[in-house]
């Protein structure tokens, strides 16, 4: 959001200086730079340098026998033909198309319901939906491991009582859905809070106008609230796209329960990690990570572009 610029003093029209800014301006600049310096230093050291270093690494090959050699883009060519990498990316695309709409849809509904103020235990419900986000991943995996368990999990027990076969949540066919479920549970609250905050900042005059026009709650939500929080929706969408392609924690944790269902290449991120630490192929892992970053960039850009186009058309 742009800040209002009322405080800018009207500048007397004077001849522009030959070069540079006034001493006052320069001092201001210096102060500003010194204030962002801590961030910049950390940003460069922790993000930019490793990024370039990884890019540099990805151009080499380090073999257990024979040592290091420069191979140019060979690692990238290999990655683009690697069924493990491509399979992982495809799996994530599937995940994206199914899980993200469900999660964001739920988050939006929760946010709208909370914003409408039609619940009694408003705070309690809000907190309840958000709490899973605060549960550490390890604890969440233990919990879901129990819930999904084929022998003593509640679903299995209910199925047994009903004389049905226990649903095998951890089998090949169900696993992706099971992970979607965990991720949705974890992040609905997080997205809801973003959307809810955006809803709270809608000027109330709009509601008054809508009420005058005779709009009900549903109509208000559809025609005023949702269009007003479009930027927040796009934000959550892009966060979700990025999060999906970087999926790592949940499958990595569920591996202990179903080690032969979730392979080392189940998600691209998991694959890069295992390449680096099990295959001892850091260079190839760097190439995979870079390619993954590229995929995320492209998909995020496409999402943003299409959202903007719709906005312009609207």
């Amino acid at each position: 959001m742009s800040t209002k610029t009322t405080a800018v003093p009207s500048r007397p029209t004077q001849a522009p200086r030959k070069r540079g800014a006034s001493p006052m301006k320069r001092r201001q600049n210096a102060a500003a730079y010194s204030m962002v310096a801590p961030f910049l230093v950390i940003f460069v050291l922790m993000l930019v340098v490793p990024l370039f270093y990884a890019g540099y690494l990805s151009l080499f090959q380090d073999r257990l026998v024979g040592g290091v050699s420069f191979v140019g883009l060979e690692n990238y060519v290999r990655a683009l033909q690697d069924p493990s990498f491509l399979g992982g990316v495809l799996r994530m695309v599937k995940f994206l198309l199914i899980q993200v709409p469900i999660m964001l849809g739920l988050a939006l509904v929760f946010a709208l319901v909370l914003d409408a103020g039609i619940l009694y235990a408003q705070r309690f419900v809000r907190l309840g939906i958000f709490v899973p986000y605060a549960v550490p991943g390890v604890v969440a995996a233990l919990m879901w491991g129990y819930l999904y368990g084929p022998d003593f999990g509640p679903a299995a027990q209910i199925a047994e009582k009903l004389g049905l076969p226990a649903p095998d949540f951890l089998s090949n066919e169900w696993m992706l859905g099971s992970i979607m479920n965990v991720v949705t549970w974890e992040f609905v609250g997080y997205n809801m809070i973003i959307l809810y905050a955006a809803l709270r900042s809608i000027p109330s005059e709009l509601y008054d106008a809508a009420a005058v026009d005779g709009a009900g709650k549903v109509r208000t939500a559809w025609s005023i609230k949702i269009p007003s929080i479009r930027p927040a929706l796009i934000l959550t969408l892009i966060f979700s796209v990025i999060g999906t392609f970087q999926l790592f924690n949940e499958p990595n944790l569920l591996r202990s329960l179903a080690p032969n269902v979730i392979g080392v290449d189940y998600t691209p991120n998991l694959y890069a990690y295992n390449l680096a630490f099990i295959n001892r192929d850091v260079n190839y892992a760097a190439a995979i990570a870079f390619l993954l970053g590229f995929v995320i960039m492209v998909v995020s850009y496409v999402v943003q572009l299409s959202a903007q186009r719709k906005e312009r058309a609207a």
Partner: peptide
């Protein structure tokens, strides 16, 4: 391993550290 965040950038950083 779960403690290692899933962020791709971090994966890069990890790869960089160990490389």
């Amino acid at each position: 391993a779960a403690l290692v965040s899933g962020a791709a950038v971090l994966t890069l950083a990890l790869a960089a550290c160990s490389g």
